[in-house]
Simulated assay, not measured.
Amino acid sequence: MSTTKIGWIGLGTMGIPMSQQLISAGYPVTVYNRSKDKEATLKKQGADTAATPAALFQQTDVMIIMVTDDNAINEIFTGKEGLLSAGVNGKIIINMSTVSPSISKEMAALCKEQGNRYLDAPVSGSVKQAETAQLVIMAGGDAAIFEQVKPVLDKMSKMATHVGDVGAGNVAKLAINTLLSIHTQGLAEAVLLAKQNGIEAATLMELLNNGALASPYMKIKGDAILADNYKAAFSLKNIAKDLRLSKDIGLSTPIGEAALKTFGAAEHEFGNDDLIAVKKYLDK
């Protein structure tokens, strides 16, 4: 059993199964979440809880954060009872959220002033991969710090890779999610084009799943379309958010900008659905 004390902030769709992997691996895990009912799920499995981010930071060695956006990160670090108010040093903070490279650079600088170290380490994969420790992790920050915490990251992933300085992990994740949006919109458009010309989605998906374009993602989202199941594994509003972050770091290519326009429009009605709900938007 590891003696590294893990602090965890953010018990959403991904945060719960990811933190459960660390509990199962024998790490002492203490959690903080604004919604206390989600903390109860982890307490049943052996996690402790902390009243505030600052209190959590004081009692753990490695802090892991998995939240939605830059605003949440800013509050967690600089809020009245945020991490930076704890007045501690010698800690490692791993921000696994999909956020902007700029917020990572800002928070890393503030952490360094206090004698703490920061890694941005977002993940590629969804709930199923989180539940089976098959995520892909891309980390930005000091390489030596990455190697120090890699055993922790390995418990949640099939691959954890250092990709560059602070912010590089965020850049890699935004590039991946830009491609994800393009694949998703492309599948939705193909299904609609086929249907407009008398070919049912089930027939098209059988062809796709047995051809050169076959992929696990194509099958998962194709099955969702066939089942009319748009429960969010990764919400449409979050892919729209990520595309806006991609735009902020220079996305200006034709297909990427088209995806940004489409998902940005679709999120007003289908934002809480899975991102494949772009098919419902296009169908209208």
Rank of each mutant, 00 (worst) to 15 (best):
T3V: 07
I6W: 12
G7N: 07
G10R: 10
L11R: 07
M14A: 10
I16R: 12
Q21N: 15
K38W: 13
A40H: 07
A40S: 13
A54R: 02
D61W: 03
D70N: 10
T78A: 14
G82A: 09
S85E: 14
V88E: 14
I94Y: 02
M96N: 08
S104A: 11
E113I: 10
Q114W: 02
A121C: 13
S126T: 12
A133Q: 08
I145E: 14
E147C: 01
Q148D: 13
V149K: 04
P151D: 13
L153I: 09
D154V: 03
M156L: 11
K158V: 14
K158E: 14
H162D: 10
N170L: 00
N170F: 01
K173D: 03
L174P: 01
A175Y: 09
I176W: 07
L179M: 13
L180M: 13
Q185P: 00
G186M: 09
A188C: 06
L193R: 04
E200Y: 00
E200V: 05
E206P: 00
L207G: 11
L207R: 00
L207S: 11
A212I: 08
A212L: 13
L213M: 15
L213R: 00
L213C: 06
K219I: 05
I220F: 14
I225Q: 06
L226V: 02
A232L: 10
S246G: 14
S246R: 06
K247G: 11
I249A: 03
L260A: 10
K261A: 15
G264A: 02
A265V: 01
F270V: 07
I276T: 12
A277V: 12
V278A: 04
